Structures are given as C-alpha cells and as structure tokens.
Simulated scan of single mutants.
Amino acid sequence: MTRRARGHGPLALLLRLGGNLIALAGRRRRRLCILTYHRILERPDPLLESEVDLASFRWQMRLLADGFNVLPLPEALQRMRQGTLPPRAVCISFDDGYRSVCELALPVLQEFGLTATIFATTAHLDDGSMWNDRILEAVRRLPEGAFDWEALGLPPALAAGRKGGVVSDAESRLHIATVINEYAKYMPPPERLRVIAALEQCAGNPDTADLMLDRAMIVALTRAGNEIGGHTVTHPILSKVEDEHALREIVDNKHALEQIVRQPLRLFAYPNGKAGVDYDMRHVRMIGAAGYDAAFTTAGGSAGPDSARYEIPRGRPWDRTPIMFGLRLLRWLAQRGA
C-alpha cells in the first residue's frame, strides 16, 4: 500500500521542527532511534500492561510517519556509519516473533508505508508459546487464594510482595506473574520448565494459544518489505547457559530462519539484552563469528557512529500519550555520544 499524505497536525509539526533543530546542531553525528516492540494486543490486557494495544500502535505509527523519517534498519545503519542519516531518523523493531506482528501490526505498518525488523525465535514456529507466556496464562487462571510458592520451587520472598502473594484480582496476578517471570528468567532451562509445569498443574493445565509466527507468516513479512533478524532458538539468557549451548542457540536460529527467508540474516538481537547481565563479550564474539553484520541491546536511548557494531542500543516506547512519546524520541535524538 502506498503511503498516505503526511498529516500537518500541531504535534507533528512541532516534532519535525524540534528534530530538525537537533539535527542541525549535530549534523555530522546525527543519531538514530530504534524502537522495540514485542506483542501487539487487540485490546488492553491488565496482565500485559507493558505491551501496546492495536489502537495505541496505530497512533504511534501515524505519529512516526508524520513527524519522523522512518528507515529500514539495514539502510539506517549504513547511513549512520556514513554520516548521512536524515534528521529525525527512526527504525521499528519487534522482538521474539509473535504472530500479532503479522496479524495486527503489519496492516498498520502498510497503512502508513512503514517497514520493520522482526527478531524472531524459532523454537515455536510450528506450535506453542514461549515460556514467559506459559507463566502468564497459568497465573491468569490460578484459583483465588494463597499458595505454597516454595513448594513450586519459587522464592518464599514472593509471599512478601503485594497482597502477600495471594492470588485475587488482576493487580495481584500481574505482580505475581512479574515476580515469577523475573525469577524464572535466570533459572537453568530444565529447572524453569519444571516450575512452569508445576504452576500450570495448579492452574488446571490451561491451553496456551499458539502465539508465535509460523513459517508462512515470516515469508509474508519479508515479501512485504520487512527484515527478519536472529534472536536465538529458545530465548535463553545467554550468560546463564554453557558456551556450547549459547553458540548452538545463535547458529541454529540463524540457519532455520535463513532456510525460510532464502537469504542471509544480517542482524541479531540479544535475548533480554542487558550488557554484562544477559550477555557478555563471549557472545559478542559468537555473533560476529556467526556472520551477523550488527547486533542490538536493550540499553535504551539512541544509536550513533560511536555505537559498537555488536552492541547497538534500542529503546522501548513506554509512553502512553502522543506528546510524551514524541518528546521522548526527541530527547533520545538529542543525546551526544562519546
């Protein structure tokens, strides 16, 4: 679909003017904002408050189309290195590979003439969901009341949290799901799966919908002009698995996706993405050896010519109003590198 005519609302005009002034001040070292999304929701979900619903995603994409210069990520990286970025340069990315990217986000991107990079895992291309979504759906369906969290292999400190760890309303379920997710994230994978199985049993073994992209969806995304990037097979915390395991996660994921898209993968995003916590220089070297051109963290802020090739920062769009969303991007673009 061709891009619609630019809007000329007051906010978009303000953002264009502000972004142009920022660009003039740092013409030789213009910076790039790379936004990160995960799931797009049909409607707001109290247990997924950090995820963007479809209506919010549409106004965000409209504002990007009207107020910024949205570039494909490979092109933006090349121009950043060459010093030829346009003012107000922004890229869009999605992590994990949720099917909502194809079913909900893609029509909106096409409506505004935008493209994105999707960093996809490959463990659930045929069916199933990632471990964090299994936890969420189990907590959603837990019966009300107190639980012996320690018996499930979870920390007793969980009971010291909001409402004493008692399952009741949506607020308590969100708190419990968040605590379990943060704890389980750094567990050895076999232990994590045991805890999830026990939690699901307490919840009556709920069926979890197939939430991830399938092969046909990945092909459809690429045919629509989007880039596919690597994100490991099972989304492990690379620093918490053995080197051989980490390398296999990186290489097998790259190979599987290249078989689908029929072209080399150029870009990689670290699972969870915190330097020194979720990955370290061992994994940076693995990414280079696997043949990737660049890799991305979750450090927030903007990228520039000073950004390390395999540790390029990206930021998540937390703001819930257009003015705060736009001003955050301007603040990031105004950053100065080393």
Rank of each mutant, 00 (worst) to 15 (best):
S100R: 03
D53G: 11
I40S: 07
T117L: 04
E137L: 05
A123F: 09
R79I: 01
L136T: 11
E137I: 07
V139G: 05
D53E: 15
W59N: 09
L41P: 04
D45A: 15
I135G: 08
A138I: 02
S93L: 09
A116N: 03
R58S: 11
Q60P: 01
P87S: 10
S100G: 04
F119K: 00
R81E: 13
W59T: 10
G128Q: 09
A120Y: 05
F119W: 00
V52C: 15
W131F: 04
I118Y: 15
A65F: 08
Q78V: 13
M130R: 06
G97E: 00
A55C: 15
Q82W: 02
Q60H: 12
L54R: 15
L71M: 14
A89S: 05
S56N: 11
F112V: 08
Q82M: 12
E144W: 02
Y37Q: 07
L142V: 04
N132G: 15
L54D: 14
S129K: 02
R39E: 14
A55S: 14
T84Q: 11
G128M: 05
V90D: 01
L64S: 00
R88H: 10
H38F: 08
V70Y: 02
A138C: 12
D127E: 12
Q110Y: 06
V139A: 02
E75I: 06
F119C: 10
F119S: 12
D66E: 05
E51F: 14
D96A: 03
E75K: 03
L109G: 10
L64K: 00
N69C: 08
L64D: 02
A116C: 09
P74A: 04
A105M: 04
P44F: 07
S100K: 03
D53A: 09
T121N: 14
R39L: 06
M61Y: 13
F68D: 01
L125P: 01
L114W: 00
Q82V: 06
S129F: 00
R99A: 07
P86R: 03
R39W: 05
A65E: 03
P72Q: 14
R43H: 15
A120T: 10
S129T: 05
E49G: 13
V90Y: 00
G83P: 06
L136K: 07
R141D: 13
R43G: 14
L73H: 03
M130Q: 04
